[in-house]
Design a protein around this nucleic acid. Structure first.
Length: 292
DNA sequence: GCGACAG
DNA sequence: ATCTTGTCGC
């Protein structure tokens, strides 16, 4: 499913006929969620088949011409050859919107909702803590996992490479990073994972920390710089009369799996007091040597 | 026009 | 997160 995203974006754009245009948002809607408009643009910016996939036919929602890897003048020229003019900042063309689509993001949403039902918000056992992070260059991803004991002494460092299967799309981050997490966490037991991202503080109560905690069948806590769901009341974050996480300074904390709200706060505070321990280490490790 | 926007 | 092909709301 995840691995279909880039290809589905390209397959949708390929359907736009010569002489017509579509918009980033409409392609995103055909993918299954308009929030992906920017992700569509990101995918097109690394379009591997520029002739076959006519990404010059995709423009802004208000018909401004938008960006182009080979320069906006080239985009304008390609459209001109197809009879589409671009005057005072807007293209003049019929908008194609009759996409045939597999709605991959809709299916991914359904999977998140199903997984959210499996999240366990009671305390589970662990004797190690891990921090996981990923860095990117184009489609190229490097993941890092740092495992420490309770005294924050490093026990093990693991890194790995992968080709990312989808662009970054808000609220679907877990799908993008799960493959590397599964690869790096293989064979580990008794680890509580800190994840760069949210846990249940997510529109479908299934952020990346939930997906990874469920995948490893382990405790996991989400640490994020912003909030995807809920309202802040003092130091707590609520959604529909239920607490879903915490705000401590400029950091949002939410359980991912097998931890209570209280434990996720206590452990995260301990960690943030130590410069974020394994998460900082994983972050550093993921960023260096991004080429294998 | 500027900030949001998990990363 | 990267190094810039978005959209919306204020």
């Amino acid at each position: 499913m995840v691995e279909e995203v880039y290809e589905e974006i390209y397959s949708l754009v390929r359907q736009i006929p010569e002489g017509m245009v579509s918009t980033y948002k409409r392609v995103a809607e055909a993918l299954g969620d308009p929030i992906a408009a920017r992700g569509v643009a990101e995918a097109l910016s690394i379009n591997p088949r520029p002739i076959d996939v006519p990404c010059h036919r995709v423009v802004h929602e208000d018909l401004r011409i938008g960006g182009f890897r080979f320069g906006v003048e080239e985009k304008k020229s390609l459209l001109g050859k197809e009879g589409v003019s671009a005057e005072n900042g807007a293209v003049r063309a019929e908008i194609f919107d009759d996409f045939k689509s597999g709605m991959v993001l809709k299916r991914m949403q359904a999977q998140q909702m199903e997984m959210s039902g499996n999240v366990d918000l009671s305390d589970g056992d662990f004797d190690l803590i891990g921090g996981f992070d990923v860095s990117y260059r184009d489609r190229f991803a490097k993941g890092a996992l740092c495992v420490m004991n309770r005294r924050l002494e490093v026990i093990e460092l693991r890194t790995g490479y992968a080709l990312s299967s989808m662009p970054y799309i808000p609220t679907y981050l877990g799908f993008r990073e799960l493959p590397l997490f599964e690869k790096l966490s293989e064979g580990l037991e008794g680890v509580l994972y800190f994840i760069d991202g949210n846990g249940i503080m997510h529109p479908r109560l299934c952020g990346s920390a939930c997906m990874m905690g469920l995948s490893a069948d382990s405790p996991a806590i989400g640490i994020a710089k912003s909030r995807l769901l809920g309202t802040v009341e003092g130091e707590a974050v609520f959604y529909e009369d239920r607490q879903i996480g915490w705000k401590r300074g400029n950091t949002f904390i939410s359980p991912g799996n097998r931890v209570t709200l209280q434990t996720s706060l206590d452990l995260a505070e301990g960690l943030l007091g130590h410069g974020a321990g394994p998460l900082r280490m994983a972050h550093r490790l993921a960023r260096i040597n991004r080429q294998p």
